[in-house]
Simulated scan of single mutants.
Amino acid sequence: MHASILKYFVEVARCGSIRKAAQNLYVASSAVNRQILKLESEMGTDLFDRLPNGIRLNAAGERMLQHIRVTLNDFHLMRSELDELKDERKGHVSVVAMDSLFVDFLPAAVEDFSELYPAVTYSIAAVTPWDVPSKVLGGEFDVGVTFIAKLPAGLDVAAQVALPPGVVMASSHPLARQERLSFADCRNHAFLRLEGRSPIQGVVSPKFAEFWDLLTPSVTCNSTTLLKRLIASGRGISFFSKLAFVEEIASGEVVWRPFDEPNINALTVGIITPTQRALPNVTHDFVRGIVHRLKQVELSLLDT
């Protein structure tokens, strides 16, 4: 059986939903469903009971899951042993990124990469978007993920996608009915702020900086996870890229609306590396993996 089929099966079994599994895997629901049907065809039996609100493993599926977990565990042990014999697939990956990447994107990226490179170690830090380039340029980290504006010399952009910051709110919020939002639209609504300067204050026009300084937040904290919960519960609006709300946007729990400001909408999220410093092969492999993942996220969020 192909490794992707096993991975899809385990995720569907864990989630009890093909749609939720597809979101977590950053692939289309149809692709996951197709792999599950293919596996059931190969086994000659259904592995899930189809229910009105999802799917559930049946007895055959439970036995299959048990077998897959043993198989994957043995595979990872074998790969680790081979890597030790070859002294390959080792090394250290250092990444610095803006906080919103720590919700889903980076945890999933590290999980996937660790399956292929179990001996690799990591240093991962969350900083403000405008601090990411200097951290990479100064040699503290080898890879950065942030909003891309004017970068200093000495940095390459491995990939960038159109995921600019916008306004996020509960689907029941009055502003959710509008297609685009001006600063004036946002000014009289409860605002939930991530502690510190605006995540885009250093990369857009002074007009946004003035707007930011006039806002009086009802909640200020340093946790994106806490803000996500408050936003979804209707406590107020906040400013984020869709990257921090992939699951909630897909489910309709929250909505994201662009600003009516070309400078903000032109911002992209990108992966940066140094140009003058040779990086280990394992870091290049990690970068290729997150480039692919970032593009998959962009595709999954089209028209949401």
Rank of each mutant, 00 (worst) to 15 (best):
M98L: 06
L163D: 02
A266G: 10
T304Y: 10
L137S: 04
G44R: 08
V103T: 12
G202Y: 12
R229T: 12
A162G: 00
L6P: 00
R193F: 10
G202V: 05
V12G: 02
H76T: 09
G16P: 03
S233G: 11
T283A: 00
V143H: 02
F113E: 01
M1R: 08
L302R: 15
G234C: 11
G91Q: 01
I36L: 11
A126F: 04
S30Y: 13
I264G: 07
E253G: 10
P52Q: 02
H173C: 06
S238R: 09
A13G: 06
W212V: 06
A108G: 02
I231T: 08
P206A: 06
A244N: 02
I231K: 02
S17A: 07
H284E: 12
V136M: 07
Q296M: 13
V255W: 05
I148A: 05
G196D: 08
I148T: 07
S241F: 06
N263I: 01
G61N: 03
Y117W: 07
T220Y: 10
G166V: 01
S251H: 12
M98Q: 08
P52C: 03
N53G: 00
E81C: 04
A28L: 13
L194I: 11
G154N: 09
T216F: 04
L301Y: 04
L215K: 05
L294C: 02
Q276V: 04
N53T: 11
W212A: 09
L47Y: 06
G44S: 07
E253T: 15
F141Y: 14
R79G: 00
A125E: 15
V120C: 05
F147G: 05
T45L: 06
S233A: 15
F239T: 12
A244L: 08
A126E: 05
D285S: 15
T216E: 14
S172C: 04
V27C: 13
A3S: 14
D285H: 13
L82K: 09
A3E: 15
M78V: 00
L72H: 00
S29C: 09
S123E: 11
D83K: 01
V168R: 04
I264S: 09
P174V: 08
R229F: 03
L101I: 11
M169C: 07
M1V: 10
G234F: 10
E62T: 06
M64A: 10
I237N: 01
F208W: 15
L6Y: 13
V157Q: 09
E210S: 15
M78D: 13
E179P: 00
V145T: 05
R293A: 07
Y117E: 00
D142R: 11
N24Q: 13
E111M: 02
R89M: 00
S80C: 09
E81Y: 11
E42A: 11
K38W: 10
R187Y: 06
G270H: 09
F240E: 15
M169D: 06
N24I: 00
L243H: 02
Q23R: 14
E11H: 03
I272F: 03
L294S: 02
A278I: 14
R187L: 11
P199T: 07
Q160P: 00
L299N: 12
R56P: 00
W256L: 03
